Amino acid sequence: MALSGASNYKAETVEAEVEIKSNSGKLFKLISNQHHDVPKASSDNVHDVAVHEGDWETSGSVKLWKYTLDGNVETLKEKVEIDEANKLVSLTALEGSHVLEKYKSCKIIFQVTPKSEGGLVKITLGYQRLNENDPPPHKYLRFLVNVIQDIDAHLLKE
Score class of each variant (00 low, 15 high):
residue 110 F to V: 01
residue 123 I to V: 12
residue 43 S to F: 14
residue 59 S to N: 06
residue 116 S to Q: 15
residue 40 K to R: 12
residue 118 G to F: 08
residue 80 V to L: 07
residue 12 E to G: 02
residue 129 R to V: 08
residue 94 L to H: 03
residue 94 L to E: 09
residue 50 A to Q: 15
residue 56 W to L: 06
residue 90 S to M: 08
residue 89 V to Y: 03
residue 87 K to D: 00
residue 50 A to I: 12
residue 14 V to R: 00
residue 115 K to N: 13
residue 54 G to R: 05
residue 124 T to K: 00
residue 129 R to L: 15
residue 114 P to Q: 11
residue 79 K to F: 09
residue 128 Q to E: 15
residue 32 S to K: 01
residue 68 T to Q: 14
residue 93 A to W: 06
residue 74 E to C: 15
residue 114 P to F: 12
residue 129 R to T: 06
residue 48 D to A: 15
residue 45 N to H: 12
residue 92 T to D: 04
residue 118 G to C: 10
residue 118 G to D: 08
residue 27 L to Q: 03
residue 105 S to Y: 05
residue 81 E to H: 09
residue 19 E to H: 07
residue 45 N to W: 06
residue 102 K to I: 05
residue 107 K to V: 12
residue 24 S to N: 03
residue 63 K to C: 04
residue 25 G to A: 14
residue 114 P to S: 15
residue 18 V to P: 01
residue 122 K to M: 06
residue 131 N to E: 14
residue 49 V to Y: 05
residue 48 D to Y: 06
residue 53 E to Q: 14
residue 111 Q to Y: 03
residue 44 D to M: 09
residue 48 D to C: 07
residue 17 E to N: 05
residue 98 H to M: 10
residue 43 S to T: 11
residue 114 P to D: 13
residue 92 T to V: 13
residue 119 G to A: 11
residue 103 Y to F: 15
residue 111 Q to P: 02
residue 44 D to T: 11
residue 64 L to W: 05
residue 123 I to S: 00
residue 27 L to K: 01
residue 14 V to K: 01
residue 31 I to L: 05
residue 111 Q to R: 12
residue 128 Q to W: 04
residue 90 S to T: 15
residue 52 H to I: 10
residue 123 I to H: 01
residue 31 I to A: 02
residue 76 L to P: 03
residue 77 K to I: 12
residue 78 E to L: 06
